[in-house]
Design a protein around this nucleic acid. Structure first.
Lengths: 220, 220, 220, 220
DNA sequence: TATGAATGAGACTTCATTCAT
DNA sequence: AATGAATGAAGTCTCATTCAT
């Protein structure tokens, strides 16, 4: 798998080795680490392999990251926050039907998360949360709750505007988000073995049912 | 965390070591292992700790399980299959509204999985699938597909009987199951840090929205 | 390989299990141990396997032998001393040509040692001498020196009687014995891989050359 | 015991740890391993001790050798083949009396093998052959048969040239070599306990008797 | 800055030995 | 007397981390 996140590439551009500058290194390392953490989990991610994929030596890792845990945190921080900002922005700018907005956010998730290596992040967080309480807290507060919060508002508004049925915004937000997160997790766990799995069909179905489930009028 | 699975308890009752209990040992060990695997994941689960929790010595583990991987497989096998059989039975015996059956199955999941340590199993499988392809395949075929299959049939019947909207049974089954699995995973990852999380409220909301989402008539 | 030493058999006569009496046990165990020590060496000889071959449980071993080392010593003691006595007797009774006696002793070695599992003993002693100094000393004093001593006398007499060339008895005895011992060692090390090896042809050649080498007259 | 093999010394000269010496390491490790394997055999050779004697840490061993078995093979390969080549060369260059050549080869064995730690190699092979069939085969084919082969030719030539009695070259070669190998084995097994043992006297006697034994004419 | 050889704590696993039954 | 479940010390091997170069 190759991840293109922003303008980063984890491939080692051997041709331009000499052009590598100090500023690019951390990003390359973190991208390489994302791959390995995602594939193997925290414990089985060997720094030897991260270094190899980043095209550097193991020792060099320690010039940029204090230890394995710091690298792990960097991975989470680096890739997650920009996504949230983007989503919040989109929501803030949106006018009109909330249903449409939910569809758009779902689409964004599909494009930016599921179809890139970023879906590995939720998988790691789930797997490692109990081993990294501090990180888990950080992630919960700064990622999950933030997203949940504006989804909640959005739904509450939808209810107020008569678009959605009466319901608790927080809980409905959870119900909206859980399947999205699940899709990301699935991608990096059992999907590779699940031949029948069709990411898009699944996402569409979930979204459809959710929308049907909270819309006020009948849509048949 | 304490798990009560059937009548097993992982607490160490034996004041005296050197008690011969060939019969009970495997069950005790597997229960202890479930706890540790669930908390720590495969790699960080130390057999020392499993042994301690099972009230035996490390060496004794190897009288019953060839190695760590075998123990892991035993954990998965032991706790999962009975649950499926129970669910299949319930579905087979059920007559009448499919909606009611889905509610009952959800309730069963809540009681037997979420409120026991068994919710740890999906968490382990998600975390370790890529490291244990063989086990992943087994789990997918013998657990997930089996469940998905009868849920799919059930929904298809519901559609045929005019209870549910027109929809693809397989995909709808995925949409029904994903939030349940997600709840189990959540339980063993971020829920401990997520103070607002109310398991029952969440499950109920998801179920409600799902039912609304696939029911034919308006329920308002 | 099956060893028949005296009247012992290491095979487990399951049919007559009930007839096993306390007196027979040690012999059975020691015979089983000879096999395993010979095959695997001291360290890789697992008492589990010795017990299984002896048809008893591991615990029972400890009723008869204090520990692994004691068992090892028992093996050496049990099988070696009788052979020596037999050889000494033969030499004591012999009259006439020493050359003939050497041929007979060689033949006895071939029959009693090389063609039985007893050839394993020298192999073990060689392999384990440095790990068991006490046993090494015992073996050297009570086995090797005793044999060497009467061979030495025998050769010295041969010299005195004009049958053999002038030579040092001790050294000639070593020269006579070394190839015999070597044959035993070979049997349990590289012979199984040495397809061209023909035990009898080798022994005969060695003996021939030795006899030629110390005989006084020309034999051509 | 100290082994001087080529210019290597196993003594730890480096006062300071953390010296980078990729070049010398493998040789030092292998020399240290020769000592320990020779003393203790394969199973009782602790990598801890090898590391200590080589003046490195246990982990460093694994930078150079995949595992204990690989180290064992390296020991055998490293020390044995050069000796053979040397012997073959000597034989190839030799002109004139075969008897003299046999004496020279024996002398070379005494100097290069018996009086260095290399005599440990035959001891190890004998002790471990049955546990390392692959290595046993390698050793037999590439070491023993090679040596036996040119000794055999040499003797056959001696017979043809009328220097030696009529005899089978292969078998005579075995008869010539066995005592040499035996001497090596003895060195690392019972010789340390055998106070009367005089290596040189023994070797000379064996050689003398062998030469006498195959020479055509009478040498008295 | 970058390297990669070196380290050592710590994990899994084995097996001689013990002892309740 | 016999068993075999249980033990725990000890060994091999891994890998995050360090540091001389």
């Amino acid at each position: 798998m190759r991840y293109f996140v922003g303008e980063l590439s984890t491939s080692v551009e051997a041709a331009c080795r000499w052009r590598r500058r100090k500023e690019e290194r951390p990003a390359e390392i973190v991208s390489a680490a994302l791959e390995v953490f995602t594939d193997k989990g925290f414990a089985l991610c060997k720094l030897d392999e991260v270094a190899k994929r980043a095209g550097i030596s193991k020792g060099t890792l320690y010039l940029y990251f204090e230890n394995k845990e710091a690298l792990f945190k960097a991975v989470v921080n680096k890739f997650v926050l920009p996504q949230i900002e983007q989503a919040e922005e989109k929501a803030a700018l949106h006018k009109g039907s909330k249903q449409v907005l939910l569809r758009e956010l779902t689409e964004q998730w599909r494009l930016n998360i599921l179809e890139t290596g970023l879906s590995g992040i939720p998988k790691i967080m789930i797997s490692e949360a109990s081993n990294f309480p501090e990180l888990a807290t950080f992630y919960l507060e700064n990622v999950i709750k933030r997203v949940r919060s504006f989804i909640s508002q959005l739904i509450t508004q939808g209810v107020a505007e008569g678009e959605f049925r009466q319901c608790d915004g927080e809980l409905a937000a959870r119900a909206f988000l859980a399947p999205l997160v699940f899709a990301a997790i699935w991608e990096h766990s059992l999907a590779p073995f699940d031949d029948d799995y069709d990411r898009n069909a699944y996402i569409n179905t979930q979204l459809d049912i959710f929308i049907h489930g909270i819309m006020k009028g009948k849509q048949e």
